[in-house]
Design a binder for these strands. Structure first.
Lengths: 218, 218, 218, 218
DNA sequence: ACCTCCGGGACGTCCCGTTTAT
DNA sequence: ATAAACGGGACGTCCCGGAGGT
């Protein structure tokens, strides 16, 4: 909800004239609408949300929403883009911790799971992703970037001897991401994500854990 | 729902005359509608399908559809039930082959993947499952039965020494099913299921393969 | 509900052959349907009733209803005819009591009020009468017969000196019937006819009572 | 509903520019829709009217109608409220004439009858009243206010010696209103209200006239 | 002759995403 | 940025035939 103030600051302090002030308000409004849309999409899904819902959540009128976003699809696209900008940031934050590659993978997945559990924008993005067939506009191809990051880490792990030289980082990453996605969905359906973290840990243990332990033993 | 079918059977055997014909027509119509609904749901998703669409696919009128299914939701539920009744049947067929447990797991997943690739009802079930929040009616809890079957096979594999005694069959099964489900979804989105089989094999290799090889080594 | 058995007997005992038996069943069925329709119309009004409702009340199928009555309007017409055949019967019963004319008027109104309060067919008829604009088929013109009976009694009362010679029986009857109808409707709306009898008595007291007393005084 | 109207006034005085104009248009549209709905309900009854009918009568689209009234029921309620707000206004106008109480009663009924004969809103209100069981929403209780006004006038007449001291104003008023309502309905059904005025005069003569003459004689 | 099952269309309501006037 | 108006469907439901049993 407050997760967006940063971006706002970036765009405004440039020109402190009246125009900038207006733009500042506009940017805040856009951000407000985006949060409201995320909330709505996360809870009700794309077809379940009406533009009036979003407007009501912001306390504004439908016209205001349409002023900032040309249509409902544009809202969905904006939320999805926000979603896809967040995932790499999580990975970046983890990589600044300078963990060993497999530990980094583990940490990235855990942090991502936490975000899925706690942040509406993430939930909204994931849900919109899943419903993208119901949305007219094209959305960024999913999972590619995330899988790439994980792949790279597995590659490093193999170079570092944490994985057997015969292992295939791309395959490992694809399966890990698939399993994470599946676990996330099943957790959502079965427990409203209450057990998402433990399911994620379980996933890592089964797919990555044994391999790393094996590497440790070697 | 099912009592109708039973009644049909009873009366067909007892009285193979006109009445059964009528009922037979109804049964045929019902299954025709179900197929049409599956086709539509698989292609367009629950919100994207109108009852008129389903009717048109059957060549009948909406009235006929509503005679057999009270609701659009009822259609979705029926398709989903069909979906969840087919998965165990695949497993049953495989188990009649008397494979070793891990081989059976592999075969079940492959056969299931083939079904996901080729059968509309399966695809529809998977899609409805993922869209279940957009459907008013409650759907069967996903994959419980399937996970149970896999768990049991892993248990047998452990008893047979194909898995280390420290492995946890439930966790393995959960992760495997999650990964399969995730791979299936990603394959759908990215390649319209063209690479589903290979992704499934990859999943098995990563999650089950190494463990079994490990067991072989031990 | 049981008010119709008489009529049934009339039509059947004529020919005790198999044909008559079938017809007997048919007549009973028709009568059953009629009662059910009256019940439904009284409670829900013509547009509020579906043929399926009537069928369900009889325990039969819609087809059976349509076999006996060509359409929903025919049901309404039949109920209304039954209604218009009952009102004169009430008057006839009262006239067999050989009361003085004004007393007869009073008794007829009271008995009619009781019928309105207690009998579904009467309530249904009254309601269908009121809704006749919503029914395609033409219904018998309302109030004419009833007003005629009352008029005749007032005429007798005037001849007998119970009413002043200047009084106009037609006007009295018209106003009395109007007031009864109005009281009946208002009682229906306000108290679901719980106070219908007392409102009817009040109506008679105000319109007929003083006149008769005045005549008594003269 | 009414707060919308107030707001209009406020903003019209404060800012007599475009904004007020917009609201004025809305007010005009609302009343246009209300008139159209009254026309439709009066002619076809609640179930016989479709919202599209109302829209067509206004020359606008269904969307416009639904913008101003959430429901078909809401339309009926609004028309009925208009109806029940007009009756007292008729009485007010008459009372400004300072007639003797019984004359006032007579005049009020006559004027009301004229309104029933000539004004669509009144006719619609009466019809909706009679069909209120077919309308989901609760309507104002019928004729309570009207009966109260008449009662009060009868009370004054009794005090003024125009009615015998033994007469009961409430009963008189109830019967008079019932009779008027009944006469109005019967006149509608039998002669499309052509004889409504004369029936109303007849009603007054029978119920009020004799009593007043009697009082004159006393 | 009486009744059942199945199917056929036709609307009616409501709502929703979206532009015009302001 | 708002208030008002626009069209376009979707769902559900209803009234009703028609083929056929008992």
């Amino acid at each position: 909800m407050t997760d967006r103030d940063e971006r706002v600051n970036i765009e405004t302090t440039v020109d402190p004239s009246g125009r900038a002030l207006k733009q500042k308000r506009a940017v805040r409004t856009r951000s407000l609408i985006l949060s409201a849309a995320a909330e709505a999409f996360a809870n009700q899904g794309f077809p379940g949300v009406t533009v009036a819902d979003v407007a009501k959540l912001t306390g504004m009128t439908k016209g205001a929403v349409y002023f900032h976003y040309t249509n409902k699809e544009a809202l969905a696209v904006a939320v999805t883009e926000e979603f896809y900008s967040r995932l790499p940031r999580i990975a970046d934050r983890v990589q600044e911790m300078n963990l060993a590659p497999l530990q980094a993978v583990r940490e990235i997945l855990i942090q991502t799971a936490i975000a899925f559990r706690d942040e509406k924008v993430i939930q909204a993005g994931a849900r919109l992703q899943i419903e993208h067939h119901l949305i007219g506009a094209p959305l960024p191809t999913p999972f590619l970037g995330f899988t790439g990051i994980i792949t790279e880490l597995f590659r490093q792990a193999r170079s570092a001897g944490q994985l057997p030289s015969t292992s295939r980082p791309e395959a490992l990453a694809r399966v890990l991401v698939s399993a994470f996605f599946g676990a996330q969905h099943i957790s959502w359906v079965q427990s409203n994500r209450a057990d998402l973290i433990s399911r994620t840990e379980e996933t890592i243990d089964v797919i990555v854990g044994p391999l790393s332990r094996r590497a440790d033993e070697g």
